[in-house]
Structure formats: structure tokens, C-alpha cells
Write a protein that binds this DNA or RNA. Sequence first.
RNA 1: GAUUUCGUAGCUCAGCUGGUAGAGCAAUACACUUUUAAUGUAUGGGUCAUGGGUUCGAAUCCCAUCGAAAUCACCA
Length: 503
Amino acid sequence: MSQELNDQEIVRREKLQKLSEMGIDAYPAAAFDVNYNSQQILSEYNDDVKNFQDVSIAGRIMSINSKGKVTFFKIQDQKGKIQLFVSIDNVCPGEDKTFYTSVVTHLLDIGDFIGVKGETFITKTGEISIRVKELTVLSKALRPLPVVKVKDGETFDAFSDVELRYRQRYVDLVVNPQVRETFLTRSKMVQTIRDFLNEHGAIEVDTPVLQSIPGGAAARPFETHHNALDIPFYLRIANELYLKRLIVGGFDWVYEFSRNFRNEGIDRTHNPEFTVLEFYVAYKDYFWMMDYTEKMMEKIAIAIHGTTEVPFGDKILSFKAPFKRIAIYDAIKEYTGFDVSEMNEEQLLDVCKQLHIQTDKSMGKGKLIDEIFGGKCEGNFIQPTFIIDYPVELSPLTKKHRSKPGLVERFELMINGKEIANAYSELNDPLDQRARFEEQVKLQERGDDEAMFIDHDFLRALEYGMPPTSGIGIGIDRLAMLMTNQAAIQEVLFFPQMRPENL
RNA sequence: GAUUUCGUAGCUCAGCUGGUAGAGCAAUACACUUUUAAUGUAUGGGUCAUGGGUUCGAAUCCCAUCGAAAUCACCA
């Protein structure tokens, strides 16, 4: 960071110096006791009763409007903004008026934190305000805050540069209330999910982020190195295999909000680290999981929007259960006209060619079907839809379908044309699992750099016996985007990953 | 990783076909004891992302680099 200060930064440092010369500590250590927040006062003040006559409140100065011997401040606390009325005689009742003429009118800036004590009243123009009797400087801001003004719902001089907003999220949160709202909604969503799971007896657990064998998903991992052990570690791409080990260990229902890391491109729907809720329930199958998932989704929508109908862009997404269910082969048939259910690799390659889907040598049968679905079908499922019964080649951790040969008991939940969740009846046959891993090794040898590694300890766990289990992974960031009507994942992550800034 | 667009004062933006920069807000000073995008008067503030090049002269044209966004590719 350049050490050169601009005029406003210099002025603020000078003000800090003046405060100090007056014996005022701009960064006092003592606690400032607050008895109400802005929202309580604004919603509960009654001018007939004259309540809130002994208010102590603190916040950040968002605007200053000096009228001479009277100055209006708007301060912002966690709940909103409230106006302060500071008059020279109220704040300096004696002969000495210097506190008002120096501190109040010259040394305070937008961005500073202050605490005040006073009484609530209504100004001539009808705004509930606090008549300040005592004002304490709590923290001096040395950088100017962007000043966003709003009149009649129209915003002026919005702090809107996305690069600045993401890099300096703290500023974004201070001046853009809608950004704060988005993150509060995300938090509420996570809380709703956690409550829902806890109510049903699920146990929240933590599993390793540093793994020597990255498993549970098809993705390129980040690699790191442990110095003392002198071995490579990978940042987890999924926590699936660990949660299943816990099912083996006798926990019947476990969940984890898992921060996953994948070494892939960054765009408006991808961040290198992202959050997936995974949970596994013993003695259940994927039908049960579909029922449970749609109930959970319905609950989230209602908790946030008060209804199952959720606005997203120019669409309305209906989270009213039950959701539509369609087999992947039927979906492909519907949107491409091809029945790929009986096709071999060669025939699938031909279909891809006809549909102008790019292929390469590393792609096996499962991958080709996935490409066709991803390229031609996925985007059509706007309303929440379960795509079910995937080909076995695509799903190395999934139990074979009870009645449909070549398929597995798996579903993906599609919303707004994107995959939001992925779930299955978990494969618990250790011999079958070993064979599936070996298939993955063959794919690796063909050049598929996302094929899974064999996790021998996981196989050992399965050999001790895992009850029939259903598990799911739900993309929390993507779900948050849907619930907050945001088109970019960066808008639902406090600190989205960016190239380092040259400071 | 590819293509396109963008980067001008603390913030939001003007700056047409090249003639060394403007506005609003913010800041500074003064006035004003109920303002509300407060107002009025005056003032200061920018190596125009960075480095090269073309030119008598570059914010403007060309090249490279750095950052961002959109569309692809990869994926959740």
C-alpha cells in the first residue's frame, strides 16, 4: 500500500491529533454500555407516552448535517440508522462551548463511531430522533467512507464497483444495506437447515480438511505439503467418505457443513472454496432422501420468504413439495429425441457428434451420458426437479438400482437449470465398491484427471459393515443464491476469491 | 486458459475525430438553534492502472503487463 495520503486522510489524522491535544482518546478502552438499538427506538417510540427518555446508543456516523448551533447526525448500528439531534446548549450546558464548536462541528467525520446518551423526541419534520446530552468518541475513521444517498427509493452515488465491493467487503457492508440483508438471509438459511436436521436427531460433526487421499467426488484437488511428516496433503474436495466411516462407526445420522476446495476456474457460479452440506442417514434409501430433501427445501423457502414461491430473476421458483421426478434417460429422450438407454460407447459418441457436443478419448460411457445431459437437458429444469437413476459408470459410490440393470439409485436436484444437490442410496457392498474404484483407475489411465483414487482405508471400513444408508450433498452457496435472488456466487460469499491486490 | 469490454479526484461518473483534465457527492473555511440527497458563498484535491512506443504534443492512437467484468472452456 502506498504511504501517500490523500487530502481527506491527512485532514482526519490532523483531527485525531487535535482530539488528543484536547485530552480526548479517539480509541477509548472502556466499554460503552448500550441499552437500545435504533430499530427498537424507531419501532416502539410513542410520543404520547414519551418513552425512551434515557437512551444510550452507539453507532457509526453516516451523515452530518450542521445547521450552526444545531447539528444532525445519522448513526448506523447493526439494526439500522437513527438521527441524533445535537444542539450547542444541550451538549455544552455551561459557559464553555468548545466541545460543541470543536469536536461536534469540526472533529467528527462520516465513518467515526460515537456513543451518545439522551432522550427520544420527534423533530419538527416528524423524524424520531435522539436529543443528545452526552457524546463520546468511540473510534475515529481515518479513511473517508463512500457516501451513498437515498431519496424516494432512488439511490445516488451508490458504492457499486464490484471489484471494490468484493475486495473491501467491510465498506460494502457498511454502506449497502441490501448486501447486509443478503448475508443475513444466508445465515438464516443455514440456521434453518441446522435446526431442521437437529430436530430430527442428526448429529453435527467435523471431519478432516487435510486428506492424503482426496475422495468422494470427481474433481482436481489443491495440493499442499506437511513439513513434519514430509508428505503431500490434499484439501478436501468432498467429505463423503469420512461421513460414511462415521456411519460404519455407529452414528445413524451425521451431517457437516463442509468447506470444499477444487482447483478449477473461477466465475460467477464457481469459487475455489465453497460450502456443501452433506448428511448421511442409516437404514434409508434415495426415495426417503427425496422426500426429506423436498420437505427441507420447502421449509427453507418458507423461513426466508414466508411462502414456497421464491422470486429469482424474472422467474418464480416453486418449492412446494413434492417436486417433479424424471429419470435421466427420459430427460435425454425428451430434450434430444435420442434413447441412449441401450447404447454402447460408440453409439453414444455418434449421438454426441450429432448434438455438436465435444468429446475426447478419456470419456467413458458414463461421462458421455453426463455430457449429453449437461449440454442439452440440464438448463431446461427451472422448477425444482429430481433427475433420477443415473448410469452406473457415472456413480462409483452409489448402490446399484434394485430393479433397473446398469443404473444406480441416485438423484440430482436441479433448480434453475443448475445442480443444487446430489444424493444416493450409498454403496455399502465392499466388493462392489472395490470393483468400482478399479474402474476409476482405468479411467485415470485413459487420462481422466478427475477420476477417483482408491481409498483402501475406506474399503476396509466398508468391509467391517456399513448399514444401508442414504446420503446427500447440497450446494449451500448455490442455494443461497437462489434464496437471495443473486446471479453471482460472489454476492453470497463474504470474501470471494480474487487475484491478490497490489497494496 | 481463450475472446470481448473496462480501469480518470475518497465515491459515482463526463472528457466527441490526439492540444498536459471536469461535474455531483465527500473534504476545507465561513454563515445559519429542527435539517433530511439541507442550503448559500469561497477553497483545496488527480504521475488519467503500470511500463514502453507513435507524435511537435497522448487520458485519448499502438504494444506489453497488472487488475476486473461478461461470454466460452472446466466444474458444483
